[in-house]
């Protein structure tokens, strides 16, 4: 707040923004060491890009924007390690039944729905697993929109996709997540 608008103060970065940036990262990436590294890398990248800083936003906003990119790159990296599974379809894609549920994909009633409210380590592990299990392309966009809470138009601009394309991808990701939770938690 007190920092002047057009000047960066790298010698105070950790004091001023370290906690904020680390918190931002670690709440989105569970690996603590990795989160710390990303914060460090963010500062390095910021130094390199310092001449581009125009003072249009404040220092923290600017650093956070750089950090966001780092997190996306990290998501990309871990996802590409897993190979490219395709998401399965839950609806008929053509013919008379186009757009209708494929019978074995119809959502089943959940037997222990009440268990969703508890603060349960087990459930958290399962949701992490289910998110991890999403194929590449779906995972990146789902995480950007849902975990990072980046706005839709920003993601579309960034990844050069249309809004309807984004929703198709999020739709398929959430279909798979729901089914994954059903199979591994609710109706296990």
């Amino acid at each position: 707040m007190a920092s002047t608008k057009h000047n960066l103060q790298p010698e105070k970065w950790v004091d001023l923004h370290g906690d904020y940036l680390f918190h931002y990262t670690h709440s989105r990436i569970s690996d603590r060491e990795m989160a710390k590294d990303l914060v460090q890398e963010t500062f390095f990248s910021a130094l390199q890009a310092a001449s581009n800083f125009q003072g249009k936003s404040n220092e923290r906003t600017w650093l956070t924007a750089i950090l966001k990119r780092k997190i996306i790159d990290y998501y990309r990296k871990i996802n590409s390690k897993k190979g490219k599974a395709e998401v399965y379809m839950s609806f008929y894609e053509e013919g008379d039944k186009k757009g209708k549920w494929i019978e074995e994909c119809v959502p089943q009633n959940w037997r222990n729905e009440a268990d969703s409210t508890i603060e349960n380590d087990e459930l958290r592990k399962i949701i992490d697993l289910c998110i991890d299990y999403l194929p590449d392309r779906y995972a990146i966009i789902f995480k950007m929109r849902t975990l990072q809470n980046i706005q839709t138009d920003e993601i579309c601009k960034e990844l050069e996709i249309s809004t309807s394309n984004l929703w198709v991808i999020i739709h398929r990701a959430r279909m798979q997540l729901r089914q994954c939770l059903e199979e591994n938690w609710f109706n296990k």
Partner: peptide, 9 residues
Amino acid sequence: IQDNIDTKL
């Protein structure tokens, strides 16, 4: 972290 930054200043 701050030391690492400082070395690059």
